[in-house]
Write a protein that binds this DNA or RNA. Structure first.
Lengths: 182, 182
DNA sequence: TCCGCAGGTTAACACTCGTTAACCTGCGGA
DNA sequence: TCCGCAGGTTAACGAGTGTTAACCTGCGGA
């Protein structure tokens, strides 16, 4: 059972994903939770905090669980499969959070932006290490670009959920592997 | 030499790409053009028109030139290469337009949204036909999802322009092909 | 029983937004 | 020379924003 605060954060993330940070008002968020705008301030410091907390949470979970899953095996190829599977788990379960994370980080305050940036870079590095151990023809910068392109591919989920999660999962996993390791 | 109107459209698109439609004010756009907010109304009907025209223009150009390039050959594999090359041409030359097109269509008015949707679907179908003639294991819905995922991959350009356009181009083209045709 | 407070409410404030109105200026053509 | 207008300007309006203030209510514990 989620606390009220968590319910507000989740609702806000969904609205941010649909209409953008500036396209959603505190009244909108309140209404979507069944309460009125100002009541939100009993649970949250302000609108900025909603976005910041959502983004930091996402980045932390991606990194922490990503590390955990990658550490479960020693084989580089299995490790890549584990990362792909984990990223798909997340983006299929929380499409709204994925959308917000990739497009709203410029609306963060300085402190939160720095934190999110650091977490995202660490997550990318986790992938880069695996990719580089499978592809010695790529330097670090190229591997990073390749990983970011793969995120673009995996994150396409929210924009075209026409074929059911299971087949989508299989399709995207195969495409991601093919794109990364030739 | 671009007319004033076109300069305004381009400037607005760049600002929309950076901060989102609702994150940019008419005063901001005016200032970026060296004039003041209300002066924009001598060239443009309103803020909505800025977004609508930018998005319709992008969608039309992607589709028209996409068709042209695809028609230049009969071989399906060459056709796929042509589409990938064209999409990369565009997204490397106009990263801001790509960003706006993929995230701001929900802020369009009804008429413009319908138009853009139709153009985008036609562009996707152009790709789907080519992909399906190379991959008979995919049904139409799967092929569409695969194409949209490939767009996500190709459109990652704006988010990670660390390695120079030429190598980025080569890297993404190879990845896109590998992802689509195994 | 009665207090305190968690968690709501509405009213109000200061501000920004998109847009319109009214006005000014320089310049090409009759 | 003088007119008209393209393309600017600033002032102002109404709507909507995030946020604060003041107030109300129900309920668990002394």
């Amino acid at each position: 059972m989620p606390t009220r605060r968590q319910e507000i954060l989740r609702t806000a993330s969904e609205l941010f994903a649909e209409r953008g940070f500036h396209g959603v008002s505190m009244n909108d968020i309140g209404a979507a939770c069944g309460i009125s705008g100002p009541a939100l301030y009993k649970h949250v410091r302000g609108k900025d905090e909603l976005l910041a907390e959502a983004l930091v949470d996402v980045s932390e979970e991606l990194l922490a669980t990503g590390r955990e899953r990658a550490a479960a095996t020693d084989d580089a190829s299995d490790r890549l499969d584990a990362l792909v599977a984990w990223h798909l788990d997340f983006s299929l379960r929380h499409p709204a959070l994925i959308v917000v994370q990739e497009r709203e980080w410029s609306n963060l305050g300085d402190a939160a932006r720095t934190t999110v940036r650091r977490l995202q870079l660490a997550y990318i590095d986790l992938w880069v290490d695996v990719v580089r151990s499978l592809r010695d023809d790529l330097d670090r910068a190229e591997a990073r670009a390749a990983v970011q392109a793969t995120f673009g591919l995996l994150n396409s989920t929210p924009h075209s959920a026409r074929i059911g999660p299971a087949r989508m999962r299989e399709l995207l996993a195969r495409m991601a592997r093919a794109a990364l390791v030739d």
